[in-house]
């Protein structure tokens, strides 16, 4: 799990996540922050996939699937909210 090949990948993905967090912190408007949150969700799916590749355990892929579903629904809800509509149309 902690072979140098994978450790490099973990650090690169951590750099991606910190760039997203910078945008969430700094983003001048709410839509900027929402975009960064969406991207952070997809990056974490990739993170879970790399974990399952390095450990060979299947349950990390379950985490990735559930995270992809939840992040998509959350993004849609935030987008509808920004648009100024109710959640039921």
């Amino acid at each position: 799990m902690y072979t140098p090949i994978f450790v490099f990948l973990y650090f690169a993905l951590l750099a991606c996540c910190s760039l997203c967090l910078y945008r969430i912190w700094r983003g001048p408007t709410p839509p900027d922050r929402t975009v960064a949150i969406d991207i952070l969700g997809i990056l974490l799916v990739g993170f879970a996939a790399i974990f399952s590749a390095s450990t060979g355990k299947a349950y990390f892929m379950n985490v990735a699937l559930a995270w992809a579903l939840l992040s998509f629904i959350g993004t849609l809800a935030l987008a509808k909210h920004m648009e100024g509509r109710n959640f039921d149309d």
Binding site: P31, D38, L78, K80, M82
Partner: peptide, 13 residues
């Protein structure tokens, strides 16, 4: 799909 919803939401906002 999420990107499309976000772009539209940002424009409407």
């Amino acid at each position: 799909t999420a990107a499309h919803a976000l772009a539209r939401g940002a424009y409407k906002a």
